[in-house]
Protein backbone atom coordinates (compact mmCIF):
# COMPACT_ATOMS: atom_id res chain seq x y z
CA UNK A 1 0.00 0.00 0.00
CA UNK A 2 2.78 2.36 1.02
CA UNK A 3 4.79 1.57 -2.06
CA UNK A 4 1.89 2.43 -4.32
CA UNK A 5 1.29 5.80 -2.69
CA UNK A 6 4.96 6.81 -2.95
CA UNK A 7 4.89 5.79 -6.59
CA UNK A 8 1.78 7.84 -7.13
CA UNK A 9 3.44 10.91 -5.64
CA UNK A 10 6.65 10.40 -7.60
CA UNK A 11 4.67 10.08 -10.83
CA UNK A 12 2.81 13.28 -9.97
CA UNK A 13 6.08 15.05 -9.27
CA UNK A 14 7.82 14.03 -12.47
CA UNK A 15 4.88 15.00 -14.64
CA UNK A 16 4.61 18.29 -12.80
CA UNK A 17 8.23 19.16 -13.46
CA UNK A 18 8.14 18.48 -17.18
CA UNK A 19 6.93 21.09 -19.62
CA UNK A 20 3.37 20.41 -20.69
CA UNK A 21 3.70 19.65 -24.43
CA UNK A 22 6.57 17.26 -23.93
CA UNK A 23 4.84 15.28 -21.23
CA UNK A 24 1.73 15.06 -23.38
CA UNK A 25 3.74 13.81 -26.32
CA UNK A 26 5.50 11.36 -24.07
CA UNK A 27 2.25 10.07 -22.66
CA UNK A 28 0.69 9.77 -26.09
CA UNK A 29 3.65 7.81 -27.42
CA UNK A 30 3.58 5.60 -24.40
CA UNK A 31 -0.13 4.84 -24.54
CA UNK A 32 0.24 3.99 -28.20
CA UNK A 33 2.99 1.53 -27.34
CA UNK A 34 0.86 0.01 -24.59
CA UNK A 35 -2.09 -0.26 -26.94
CA UNK A 36 0.04 -1.88 -29.61
CA UNK A 37 1.63 -4.39 -27.27
CA UNK A 38 -1.81 -4.89 -25.72
CA UNK A 39 -3.28 -5.73 -29.10
CA UNK A 40 -0.48 -8.16 -29.88
CA UNK A 41 -0.85 -9.68 -26.44
CA UNK A 42 -4.59 -10.03 -26.92
CA UNK A 43 -4.08 -11.73 -30.24
CA UNK A 44 -1.70 -14.20 -28.63
CA UNK A 45 -3.96 -14.86 -25.63
CA UNK A 46 -6.93 -15.43 -27.94
CA UNK A 47 -5.04 -17.47 -30.51
CA UNK A 48 -3.75 -20.14 -28.17
CA UNK A 49 -7.05 -21.53 -26.83
CA UNK A 50 -8.79 -20.71 -30.11
CA UNK A 51 -6.42 -22.73 -32.27
CA UNK A 52 -6.39 -25.56 -29.74
CA UNK A 53 -10.17 -25.83 -29.85
CA UNK A 54 -10.29 -25.58 -33.64
CA UNK A 55 -7.70 -28.33 -33.98
CA UNK A 56 -8.93 -30.68 -31.25
CA UNK A 57 -12.64 -29.96 -31.18
CA UNK A 58 -13.91 -28.53 -34.47
CA UNK A 59 -11.76 -30.33 -37.03
CA UNK A 60 -12.36 -33.76 -35.42
CA UNK A 61 -16.10 -33.35 -36.06
CA UNK A 62 -15.41 -32.55 -39.69
CA UNK A 63 -13.34 -35.73 -39.90
CA UNK A 64 -16.11 -37.78 -38.29
CA UNK A 65 -18.49 -36.36 -40.87
CA UNK A 66 -16.10 -37.19 -43.68
CA UNK A 67 -15.42 -40.74 -42.56
CA UNK A 68 -19.12 -41.43 -42.11
CA UNK A 69 -19.28 -41.36 -45.94
CA UNK A 70 -16.42 -43.74 -46.53
CA UNK A 71 -16.39 -47.47 -46.86
CA UNK A 72 -15.26 -49.92 -44.24
CA UNK A 73 -12.32 -52.02 -45.43
CA UNK A 74 -9.84 -54.39 -43.84
CA UNK A 75 -6.82 -52.15 -43.51
CA UNK A 76 -5.07 -49.80 -41.14
CA UNK A 77 -6.88 -47.44 -40.67
CA UNK A 78 -9.99 -49.47 -41.51
CA UNK A 79 -11.70 -47.13 -43.97
CA UNK A 80 -11.39 -46.39 -47.67
CA UNK A 81 -10.12 -42.96 -48.70
CA UNK A 82 -12.81 -40.55 -49.83
CA UNK A 83 -10.67 -38.60 -52.26
CA UNK A 84 -8.32 -40.29 -54.65
CA UNK A 85 -6.21 -39.02 -57.52
CA UNK A 86 -6.81 -41.05 -60.65
CA UNK A 87 -3.87 -41.04 -63.09
CA UNK A 88 -2.60 -37.94 -61.34
CA UNK A 89 -5.13 -35.81 -63.16
CA UNK A 90 -8.63 -36.49 -61.92
CA UNK A 91 -9.74 -36.16 -58.36
CA UNK A 92 -12.11 -38.96 -57.70
CA UNK A 93 -14.58 -38.50 -54.87
CA UNK A 94 -16.35 -41.55 -53.62
CA UNK A 95 -19.30 -40.83 -51.40
CA UNK A 96 -20.69 -43.89 -49.75
CA UNK A 97 -24.18 -43.49 -48.36
CA UNK A 98 -24.47 -47.10 -47.27
CA UNK A 99 -23.75 -46.26 -43.62
CA UNK A 100 -26.68 -43.88 -43.42
CA UNK A 101 -28.91 -46.30 -45.31
CA UNK A 102 -27.98 -48.87 -42.71
CA UNK A 103 -29.11 -46.58 -39.92
CA UNK A 104 -32.55 -46.33 -41.47
CA UNK A 105 -32.92 -49.90 -42.66
CA UNK A 106 -31.55 -51.86 -39.75
CA UNK A 107 -34.22 -51.84 -37.06
CA UNK A 108 -31.55 -52.07 -34.37
CA UNK A 109 -30.30 -48.54 -34.96
CA UNK A 110 -33.69 -46.89 -35.02
CA UNK A 111 -34.72 -48.78 -31.90
CA UNK A 112 -31.52 -47.78 -30.09
CA UNK A 113 -31.97 -44.18 -31.17
CA UNK A 114 -35.55 -43.93 -29.93
CA UNK A 115 -34.81 -45.90 -26.79
CA UNK A 116 -31.95 -43.55 -25.89
CA UNK A 117 -34.24 -40.54 -26.18
CA UNK A 118 -36.89 -42.26 -24.07
CA UNK A 119 -34.48 -43.35 -21.35
CA UNK A 120 -32.76 -39.95 -21.23
CA UNK A 121 -36.08 -38.06 -21.12
CA UNK A 122 -37.61 -40.19 -18.36
CA UNK A 123 -34.37 -40.08 -16.33
CA UNK A 124 -34.30 -36.29 -16.67
CA UNK A 125 -37.86 -36.07 -15.38
CA UNK A 126 -37.10 -38.33 -12.42
CA UNK A 127 -33.96 -36.30 -11.65
CA UNK A 128 -36.10 -33.17 -11.64
CA UNK A 129 -38.70 -34.73 -9.33
CA UNK A 130 -36.05 -35.89 -6.86
CA UNK A 131 -33.73 -32.91 -7.30
CA UNK A 132 -36.23 -30.08 -7.00
CA UNK A 133 -37.28 -30.71 -3.38
CA UNK A 134 -33.64 -31.24 -2.43
CA UNK A 135 -32.46 -28.01 -4.08
CA UNK A 136 -35.41 -26.19 -2.54
CA UNK A 137 -34.64 -27.59 0.90
CA UNK A 138 -30.97 -26.62 0.68
CA UNK A 139 -31.78 -23.10 -0.53
CA UNK A 140 -34.25 -22.59 2.34
CA UNK A 141 -32.05 -24.04 5.09
CA UNK A 142 -30.12 -21.84 7.49
CA UNK A 143 -26.80 -20.37 6.33
CA UNK A 144 -24.84 -22.48 8.80
CA UNK A 145 -25.84 -25.84 7.31
CA UNK A 146 -26.36 -24.74 3.71
CA UNK A 147 -22.70 -25.01 2.66
CA UNK A 148 -22.38 -28.41 4.29
CA UNK A 149 -25.48 -29.71 2.52
CA UNK A 150 -24.23 -28.35 -0.78
CA UNK A 151 -20.83 -29.94 -0.22
CA UNK A 152 -22.55 -33.30 0.28
CA UNK A 153 -24.19 -32.93 -3.15
CA UNK A 154 -20.86 -32.17 -4.83
CA UNK A 155 -18.77 -34.76 -2.95
CA UNK A 156 -19.94 -37.87 -4.90
CA UNK A 157 -19.03 -36.01 -8.08
CA UNK A 158 -15.39 -36.05 -6.97
CA UNK A 159 -15.35 -39.80 -6.45
CA UNK A 160 -15.10 -42.15 -9.38
CA UNK A 161 -18.15 -42.27 -11.64
CA UNK A 162 -17.30 -45.79 -12.73
CA UNK A 163 -17.15 -47.03 -9.16
CA UNK A 164 -20.45 -45.38 -8.26
CA UNK A 165 -22.12 -47.21 -11.14
CA UNK A 166 -20.39 -50.40 -10.07
CA UNK A 167 -21.84 -50.01 -6.56
CA UNK A 168 -25.31 -50.57 -8.01
CA UNK A 169 -24.33 -54.01 -9.33
CA UNK A 170 -23.83 -55.13 -5.74
CA UNK A 171 -27.14 -53.61 -4.70
CA UNK A 172 -29.35 -54.75 -7.59
CA UNK A 173 -28.09 -58.31 -8.20
CA UNK A 174 -30.36 -61.27 -7.58
CA UNK A 175 -28.31 -62.12 -4.51
CA UNK A 176 -27.65 -58.42 -3.88
CA UNK A 177 -28.41 -56.24 -0.88
CA UNK A 178 -31.85 -55.02 -1.94
CA UNK A 179 -33.13 -58.48 -2.81
CA UNK A 180 -31.70 -59.95 0.39
CA UNK A 181 -33.40 -57.22 2.38
CA UNK A 182 -36.77 -57.71 0.67
CA UNK A 183 -36.51 -61.49 1.16
CA UNK A 184 -35.67 -60.99 4.81
CA UNK A 185 -38.69 -58.71 5.22
CA UNK A 186 -40.80 -61.42 3.63
CA UNK A 187 -42.15 -59.09 0.95
CA UNK A 188 -41.02 -61.43 -1.82
CA UNK A 189 -40.36 -65.20 -1.92
CA UNK A 190 -37.79 -65.15 -4.68
CA UNK A 191 -35.35 -62.49 -5.84
CA UNK A 192 -36.70 -59.79 -8.12
CA UNK A 193 -34.62 -59.58 -11.28
CA UNK A 194 -33.43 -55.95 -11.32
CA UNK A 195 -29.87 -55.96 -12.64
CA UNK A 196 -29.56 -56.15 -16.46
CA UNK A 197 -33.02 -54.63 -16.94
CA UNK A 198 -34.03 -51.14 -18.16
CA UNK A 199 -34.95 -50.36 -14.54
CA UNK A 200 -31.28 -50.66 -13.52
CA UNK A 201 -30.28 -48.28 -16.33
CA UNK A 202 -32.79 -45.70 -15.10
CA UNK A 203 -31.50 -46.03 -11.54
CA UNK A 204 -27.90 -45.68 -12.72
CA UNK A 205 -28.54 -42.58 -14.82
CA UNK A 206 -30.66 -40.83 -12.19
CA UNK A 207 -28.09 -41.63 -9.52
CA UNK A 208 -25.09 -40.44 -11.56
CA UNK A 209 -26.63 -37.26 -12.94
CA UNK A 210 -28.67 -36.07 -9.94
CA UNK A 211 -26.02 -33.56 -8.75
CA UNK A 212 -26.05 -31.93 -12.21
CA UNK A 213 -29.76 -31.29 -11.76
CA UNK A 214 -29.56 -30.06 -8.18
CA UNK A 215 -26.74 -27.51 -8.61
CA UNK A 216 -28.35 -25.20 -11.23
CA UNK A 217 -31.72 -25.53 -9.48
CA UNK A 218 -30.13 -24.49 -6.21
CA UNK A 219 -28.41 -21.53 -7.90
CA UNK A 220 -31.71 -20.07 -9.11
CA UNK A 221 -33.71 -20.91 -5.98
CA UNK A 222 -31.11 -19.37 -3.70
CA UNK A 223 -31.22 -16.04 -5.55
CA UNK A 224 -35.00 -15.82 -5.31
CA UNK A 225 -36.50 -12.90 -3.41
CA UNK A 226 -38.41 -14.42 -0.49
CA UNK A 227 -40.45 -11.28 0.10
CA UNK A 228 -42.47 -12.20 -3.02
CA UNK A 229 -43.77 -15.29 -1.22
CA UNK A 230 -44.53 -13.26 1.90
CA UNK A 231 -46.43 -10.72 -0.17
CA UNK A 232 -48.43 -13.53 -1.79
CA UNK A 233 -49.21 -15.02 1.61
CA UNK A 234 -50.27 -11.62 2.95
CA UNK A 235 -52.66 -11.28 0.05
CA UNK A 236 -54.20 -14.61 0.96
CA UNK A 237 -52.49 -16.86 -1.55
CA UNK A 238 -52.28 -20.53 -0.55
CA UNK A 239 -48.67 -21.84 -0.30
CA UNK A 240 -49.17 -24.36 -3.09
CA UNK A 241 -50.58 -21.75 -5.42
CA UNK A 242 -47.77 -19.37 -4.49
CA UNK A 243 -45.31 -22.12 -5.37
CA UNK A 244 -46.95 -22.69 -8.75
CA UNK A 245 -47.27 -19.01 -9.68
CA UNK A 246 -44.08 -17.57 -8.17
CA UNK A 247 -41.38 -20.08 -7.24
CA UNK A 248 -41.77 -22.42 -10.19
CA UNK A 249 -41.66 -19.77 -12.95
CA UNK A 250 -38.75 -18.00 -11.26
CA UNK A 251 -36.76 -21.23 -11.09
CA UNK A 252 -37.42 -22.06 -14.74
CA UNK A 253 -33.86 -21.16 -15.89
CA UNK A 254 -32.51 -23.65 -13.35
CA UNK A 255 -34.96 -26.31 -14.50
CA UNK A 256 -33.93 -25.81 -18.13
CA UNK A 257 -30.20 -25.80 -17.38
CA UNK A 258 -30.39 -28.83 -15.09
CA UNK A 259 -32.54 -30.79 -17.54
CA UNK A 260 -30.14 -30.13 -20.42
CA UNK A 261 -27.14 -31.04 -18.28
CA UNK A 262 -28.78 -34.40 -17.58
CA UNK A 263 -30.51 -35.10 -20.90
CA UNK A 264 -27.69 -34.41 -23.37
CA UNK A 265 -24.97 -36.62 -21.87
CA UNK A 266 -27.52 -39.27 -20.88
CA UNK A 267 -28.55 -39.79 -24.53
CA UNK A 268 -24.99 -40.80 -25.39
CA UNK A 269 -24.31 -42.72 -22.18
CA UNK A 270 -22.26 -45.89 -22.61
CA UNK A 271 -20.96 -47.07 -19.23
CA UNK A 272 -24.33 -47.27 -17.45
CA UNK A 273 -26.23 -49.30 -20.08
CA UNK A 274 -23.19 -51.50 -20.56
CA UNK A 275 -22.72 -52.36 -16.88
CA UNK A 276 -26.29 -52.26 -15.59
CA UNK A 277 -28.44 -52.87 -18.66
CA UNK A 278 -28.93 -56.25 -20.26
CA UNK A 279 -28.30 -57.11 -23.89
CA UNK A 280 -31.87 -56.02 -24.64
CA UNK A 281 -31.33 -52.48 -23.32
CA UNK A 282 -30.33 -50.74 -26.51
CA UNK A 283 -28.78 -47.30 -26.30
CA UNK A 284 -27.11 -45.40 -29.08
CA UNK A 285 -23.85 -44.82 -27.19
CA UNK A 286 -23.47 -48.53 -26.61
CA UNK A 287 -24.24 -49.28 -30.28
CA UNK A 288 -21.53 -46.83 -31.34
CA UNK A 289 -19.07 -48.46 -28.96
CA UNK A 290 -19.86 -51.97 -30.27
CA UNK A 291 -19.56 -50.87 -33.89
CA UNK A 292 -16.24 -49.25 -33.20
CA UNK A 293 -14.51 -51.66 -30.82
CA UNK A 294 -16.12 -55.05 -31.55
CA UNK A 295 -16.96 -54.77 -35.26
CA UNK A 296 -14.13 -52.34 -36.09
CA UNK A 297 -16.48 -50.55 -38.47
CA UNK A 298 -15.22 -47.00 -38.08
CA UNK A 299 -17.33 -45.45 -40.87
CA UNK A 300 -20.54 -46.89 -39.45
CA UNK A 301 -19.61 -45.71 -35.94
CA UNK A 302 -18.99 -42.25 -37.43
CA UNK A 303 -22.41 -42.26 -39.07
CA UNK A 304 -23.96 -43.18 -35.71
CA UNK A 305 -22.08 -40.27 -34.12
CA UNK A 306 -23.33 -37.86 -36.80
CA UNK A 307 -26.91 -39.06 -36.29
CA UNK A 308 -26.55 -38.54 -32.54
CA UNK A 309 -25.18 -35.04 -33.08
CA UNK A 310 -28.10 -34.13 -35.34
CA UNK A 311 -30.42 -35.08 -32.51
CA UNK A 312 -28.43 -33.18 -29.89
CA UNK A 313 -27.58 -30.02 -31.79
CA UNK A 314 -30.71 -28.16 -30.70
CA UNK A 315 -30.42 -29.04 -26.99
CA UNK A 316 -26.70 -28.17 -27.05
CA UNK A 317 -27.39 -24.76 -28.56
CA UNK A 318 -30.13 -24.14 -26.01
CA UNK A 319 -27.68 -25.02 -23.27
CA UNK A 320 -25.10 -22.59 -24.66
CA UNK A 321 -27.60 -19.79 -24.80
CA UNK A 322 -28.51 -20.41 -21.20
CA UNK A 323 -24.84 -20.59 -20.19
CA UNK A 324 -24.07 -17.27 -21.89
CA UNK A 325 -27.02 -15.55 -20.31
CA UNK A 326 -26.01 -16.81 -16.88
CA UNK A 327 -22.49 -15.46 -17.40
CA UNK A 328 -23.76 -12.07 -18.51
CA UNK A 329 -26.08 -11.86 -15.51
CA UNK A 330 -23.09 -12.20 -13.20
CA UNK A 331 -21.38 -9.12 -14.53
Amino acid sequence: MNEISTRVSSVAMTTGEQSVPESRRHRARRSLAVARSGRAGRMLVTALPYLWLVLFFLIPFAIVFKISFSESIRAIPPYAPLFEMVDDTFLQIRLNLANYMMLFEDRLYLAAYLNSIKIAAISTLVCLLIGYPMAYGIARSSKAVRNGLLMLIILPFWTSFLIRVYAWIGLLKNEGLINNFLLWLGLIDQPLPMLYTPFAVYVGIVYSYLPFMILPLYATLEKMDMSLLEAAADLGCKPFKAFLTITLPLSLPGIVAGSLLVFIPAVGEFVIPDLLGGPSTLMIGKVLWTDFFNNRDWPLASAVAVAMLVLLVVPIMLFQRYQQRAEEAKR
Partner: peptide, 14 residues
Protein backbone atom coordinates in the same frame (compact mmCIF):
# COMPACT_ATOMS: atom_id res chain seq x y z
CA UNK B 1 -22.37 -31.69 -22.35
CA UNK B 2 -20.99 -33.51 -25.41
CA UNK B 3 -21.49 -37.28 -25.04
CA UNK B 4 -18.12 -38.88 -24.38
CA UNK B 5 -18.46 -41.49 -27.11
CA UNK B 6 -18.64 -38.73 -29.72
CA UNK B 7 -15.67 -36.78 -28.32
CA UNK B 8 -13.62 -39.96 -28.04
CA UNK B 9 -14.36 -41.15 -31.55
CA UNK B 10 -13.77 -37.70 -33.05
CA UNK B 11 -10.41 -37.28 -31.33
CA UNK B 12 -9.25 -40.75 -32.33
CA UNK B 13 -10.11 -40.08 -35.97
CA UNK B 14 -8.20 -36.79 -35.74
Amino acid sequence: VMPEVITGLALLLL
